[in-house]
């Protein structure tokens, strides 16, 4: 592989998947490096706990590896990957916190970086809380669109719902968030 492409960073996802499907662990590790932020981000924003999100994301990638032979290259890899990640996120949501109210999720300590001002941190916490108060189906669609930047079609494939449902969930999620974050949005 290295002889035809130079370094592994230049190989596109399609070829990496094909190699990984033949059992190439190095190719799979490169896929993990490329997509981990998206997968961890999705699970983190679904569950609200960074440590739990990283554990669950690892589990998601193990499932990806175990099911790679079922992936068909004519479908979007991101949809397929996020379908697995979404299932893992929902599983871990059910497992870890069957009875907790969504509004009281232990959110990350928001110590994202020293460059963030106290005000910005406060705002981030409010945004996370508002997202956490959305029902899981609404939250999932919102995160896949706003943070993971999947197309409607990709979201529909990932969650196995019609694109019309993607649109209506997204619109409901956004209007709920706008109501909750009205003050913040006016400040900004």
């Amino acid at each position: 592989m290295t002889s035809t492409y130079g370094t592994i960073e230049e190989v596109d996802d399609r070829d990496l998947i094909a190699c990984a499907q033949r059992g190439d662990r190095q190719a799979f590790t490169e896929l993990v490096c490329r997509h981990q932020n998206g997968v961890i981000g999705l699970i983190y924003r679904m569950c609200g706990d960074p440590q739990q999100a990283e554990d669950a994301a690892q589990e998601a990638f193990v499932r990806v590896w175990q099911n790679l032979d079922r992936y068909k290259p004519q479908h979007s890899f991101r949809s397929w990957l996020y379908r697995i990640a979404a299932n893992v996120a929902l599983d871990s949501l059910r497992r870890e916190r069957p009875s907790t109210e969504l509004g009281s999720l232990p959110l990350a300590d928001a110590s994202a970086g020293p460059e963030q001002s106290a005000e910005e941190r406060q705002r981030a916490v409010q945004v996370r809380k508002a997202i956490a108060r959305l029902s899981p189906p609404l939250r999932m669609v919102l995160i896949l669109r706003e943070y993971q930047e999947l197309s409607y079609q990709e979201i529909a494939e990932a969650l196995d719902i019609p694109t019309g449902t993607v649109m209506s969930r997204l619109s409901t999620a956004r209007s709920q968030l706008r109501q909750e974050l009205l003050v913040l949005m006016e400040e900004a």
Binding site: C33, G41, P50, A108, A112, G113, R123, A124, V127, L184
Partner: peptide, 20 residues
């Protein structure tokens, strides 16, 4: 709303290499 949401990047605990 979109820019307000995007102003909050996730804080990753582990480096990409360690995670992989």
């Amino acid at each position: 709303l979109s820019s307000l949401l995007k102003a909050d990047p996730p804080s990753l605990r582990t480096s990409p290499q360690r995670f992989a």
